[in-house]
Design a binder for these strands. Structure first.
Lengths: 117, 117
DNA sequence: AAGACAGATTGACAGCCTTCGATGTAACTG
DNA sequence: CAGTTACATCGAAGGCTGTCAATCTGTCTT
């Protein structure tokens, strides 16, 4: 099940959102819609949006620096970073005891492009 | 409850997503995050994404023209149009027996801007 | 090696969301 | 007026999601 979960995460993160006409140009195919919806779902939570904005605003943020500003428990933060990473929006760099997170601007740009021009 | 639902829908649709720094510029405030997440949630479903793309691709679409291409029942289509309308992404024009839907490009642009430049 | 520490995982619970059948409500048609 | 049509609403079922306490894994320090 861990394998399937990771495989799914891989697929989401590797999907090329920019490969297709944007939402406003032509009716979306079913597969493209599912893929885009998965990334949108990652962005459809207030805690994750704030987490992403914190990470995107600085170069690198470690998980321990997220707990306080977001007001959530450590397992919850871990869960959300995992979801955002699975969507390809952030990436984690494990150095020693800490995991350093940084944003993936290209991915966010791909979402924007998929949404309209 | 209908009143509250409509009040909420109004608030979502009227929220000015473009009023604040984008996600990548500065940490998002809690209220802004909740508001943006609500719009994202409307976009986080494959059926709604396809529905939006169909509506956005043509000038006007009536509800009865959505059932077939989306492969969903009439109550389901009605539910999804309601969600997208509450998020301000589409608007419905009731003429006679038909409801004609059209996209709201400005709202989609606001989402794009909130997501990054 | 022992203890402390960062963070991932598990399990459980509550709430929400998608979906559809059944029903309600207008509006047009004959 | 009776019937039909387009759409909204209700209620229920099933699945998914966010949250945290408890636990496990790996790393650093002493």
């Amino acid at each position: 099940m861990a394998a399937r979960s990771e495989a799914k995460a891989f697929r989401i993160a590797e999907g090329e959102l920019g490969c297709c006409p944007s939402v406003v140009e032509a009716p979306l195919g079913e597969n493209d819609a599912v893929e885009l919806a998965q990334v949108m779902a990652a962005l459809a939570d207030p805690v994750r949006l704030r987490l992403l904005s914190i990470v995107a605003s600085s170069d690198e943020v470690c998980s321990c620096e997220l707990e306080a500003p977001l007001g959530k428990s450590q397992p919850t933060i871990s869960h959300h970073t995992k979801v955002l990473a699975a969507a390809g929006l952030i990436s984690g760099d494990k150095r020693g005891r800490w995991t350093w997170w940084h944003a993936n601007p290209a991915r966010l740009a791909a979402v924007r492009d998929a949404l309209g021009r």
